[in-house]
Amino acid sequence: MSMEFRHSHIPVGDGSLHIAEAGDPHGRPFLFLHGWPQSWRAWQGVMRHAAPEARAVAVDLPGIGESTTTSDGTKSHVADLVHELVTAMGLRGATLVGHDAGGMAAYSYLRRYRDVARVAILDVVVPGVPPWEAVVRNPSVWHFGFHATPGLPETLTRGRQAVYFDHFFDILTVDHARITPQARAAYAAAYGSDAALTAGFDLYRAFPEDARHNAAYGASQPVATPLLYVRGEHSGGDIGAYAEGFHGAGITQLTTAVVPGSGHFVAEEAPAELWRLLRNWADGRHSGQDLP
């Protein structure tokens, strides 16, 4: 399914955020935030399915790809910058969808702002929200600590982005071919500069502060904005534990869902299924499990 995407650079913060759009500019808006080590391109498949029914907007996170706006890496700051984007583009009432680090930022947005209709978080643990502590103790997430080390990951991966990223694409997908050679090359290019590499690793360096922020949010008023939490069938983890964490943090309208046949990179492994899930949930036709 071929499609031309509309590209813009929106002044936000101290620079601009690069966005790509598909679908009716006046349609129901869906705003997509990618994770590491990806860019807006991660959402192309989902956007192609969404375009006949919605306004699909994907953004390069600050400092990554074509976005020149800088961030300190904290998800609260990323959320603030995304809020500026939402305001500038008139996306009030949007469905905000975030994967991986973008999902962490989407959670911060959920706690800080009330101008989106709903938030979906895909296949990530949120700092400070159970089962965060259990996840970070798991040796399979060794890269959390490595990426947080000052300077070292840049030194060791500079010029080797493609090889390094391939490791994660291969071990975290069911069908490795779902992350195509063209996509892999585009992701390496999106983190090709020293500044972009650092922007990506800063997302990890900010985890301790993110956890403090989220713990404080959890002690505040409950949040009524609907939240959808999604995991890939083969990405591991007990989705019930994540649901309990969100519920304990004050999320009052929670739906959970598992995407069959998918690993961690849900948007590229199962774009049609993910779009159907998001659309049906936004329409009130929940295909997940509603929790009290």
Rank of each mutant, 00 (worst) to 15 (best):
Arg118Thr: 12
Ala79Ser: 14
Leu85Ile: 08
Leu110Gln: 00
Gly103Lys: 13
Met89His: 01
Ile64Arg: 04
Val57Phe: 01
Leu110Met: 10
Val86Cys: 08
Ala105Phe: 06
Thr149Phe: 15
Gly145Trp: 02
Thr95His: 10
Thr180Glu: 03
Pro139Asn: 12
Thr70Ala: 15
Arg48His: 05
Thr70Glu: 11
Pro153Gly: 00
Arg160Lys: 13
Leu110Val: 05
Trp43Thr: 04
Thr157Cys: 01
Ser39Cys: 15
Ser67Tyr: 02
Arg112Ser: 14
Phe146Lys: 01
Phe144Lys: 08
Glu84Ile: 00
Ile179Leu: 15
Pro181Lys: 10
Trp36Cys: 12
Val125Lys: 11
Gly45Arg: 01
Trp43Lys: 05
Gln44Lys: 14
Gly145Glu: 10
Gly90Asn: 03
Val126Asn: 08
Glu53Tyr: 11
Trp142Tyr: 14
Asn138Tyr: 13
Arg41Trp: 09
Pro181Phe: 09
Asp175Leu: 09
Glu133Pro: 04
Val116Ile: 06
Gln161Asp: 10
Ile171Cys: 14
Asp60Ile: 06
Arg137Trp: 07
Asp72Val: 09
Met104Ala: 15
His147Thr: 09
Ala120Pro: 12
Val119Arg: 00
Thr157Val: 13
Gly128Met: 00
Ala106Leu: 12
Val135Gln: 09
His77Leu: 06
Trp43Pro: 06
Arg112Phe: 09
Val174Asn: 08
